[in-house]
Design a protein around this nucleic acid. Structure first.
Length: 284
DNA sequence: AGTGTATCCTGCAGGC
DNA sequence: TGCCTGCAGGATACAC
């Protein structure tokens, strides 16, 4: 579910709440969202203090400090990395003045030192929560592609990268090693704006199309961030509210509806095991 | 290197 | 009402 704009919206909601809080306990209800044994995870986060909340790709990144005791390594900074998968959510509970969402399928419950809690909630449990030291996080982050909203991400970088692959453009955009944070909704929306068929081999995208793709991708992501993300079903921000971008989608989920540009019915095709939505006339 | 397929898991909508 | 199938914002592992 959550792609870059949804993760970003969630992070913006959590940022005023979490820094300064110390994790006093963790209840692990579904250890399958962890990649390490429950006890190892517990010792990795227990008694640590939340310093910062950020985002990288579709991940919520929570920086933890201390304690300066036995678990601390190097500079003592560790990182809690939350990949929300399809239905993951972070739900703050018990924060003064903050409307609360509902945690219907709590997988992890973090108790904080002021009596509040942070719940990692995930219906399908495709998400994953990890804790690692700062160095491990740096190398993980380095393996991910550039942030599409970063000022240093330019059309020429995109075009250059596209040339090295024959994979269908939509699949290329979903590959987090190539570009960070793009999921199926925004990949399809960006292809439409670029007027490129989502199944076109990446290396066949022309310079002109790459420029449109670059611009379209950034516009689509920025607009979605501004509207607090897209809620198709499950996504909620930190206050339990849905996003408002779903009404702005031009092709995703609109099979049979008229293309906003030429009124040809939008088609749905499946490849790479996922649906793609496109205008058969505008995109070739 | 590519693609198709299956896997993790739950819920919901639609057809009969 | 109930049962069945297909589908879902993700990521990965496998065989070909």
């Amino acid at each position: 579910m959550p792609e870059l704009p949804e993760a970003e919206t969630l992070v913006r909601g959590l940022r005023p709440l979490l820094p300064g809080r110390r994790i006093t306990d963790v209840e692990i209800r579904h250890a399958d969202v962890l990649r390490v044994p429950a006890e190892a995870f517990r010792t990795g986060v227990l008694h640590r203090t939340i310093e910062r909340v950020g985002r990288r790709a579709k991940n919520v990144v929570v920086e933890l400090s201390g304690p300066p005791g036995r678990d601390a390594r190097g500079d003592g900074v560790s990182v809690l990395v939350v990949n929300l998968g399809m239905t993951g959510a972070l739900v703050p509970l018990g924060f003064a003045g903050v409307p609360e969402g509902r945690a219907t399928h709590p997988a992890l419950i973090f108790d904080l030192d002021d009596g509040s809690t942070l719940v990692y909630d995930d219906v399908r449990r495709f998400g994953c929560v990890e804790v690692m030291d700062a160095g491990a996080w740096r190398s993980r982050s380095r393996a991910m592609g550039p942030e599409p909203l970063s000022p240093s991400f330019r059309a020429r970088n995109l075009h250059q990268a596209l040339l090295s692959s024959r994979t269908p453009l939509r699949n290329w955009l979903l590959d987090q090693r190539r570009i960070a944070g793009v999921g199926n909704i925004y990949a399809n929306e960006a292809c439409f704006r670029a007027r490129v068929h989502p199944a076109r081999p990446a290396r066949q995208v022309t310079w002109e199309e790459a420029r449109r793709l670059h611009r379209g991708l950034r516009q689509v992501l920025r607009a979605a961030v501004a509207l607090g993300g897209t809620t198709l079903r499950d996504y909620r921000n930190a206050r339990g509210e849905p996003g408002k971008n779903q009404g702005r989608l031009l092709v995703y989920g609109r099979e049979g509806a008229p293309c906003p540009r030429c009124a040809t019915p939008i088609e749905r095709v499946v490849f790479g095991n996922r649906s793609a939505f496109l205008c058969p006339r505008c995109q070739c």
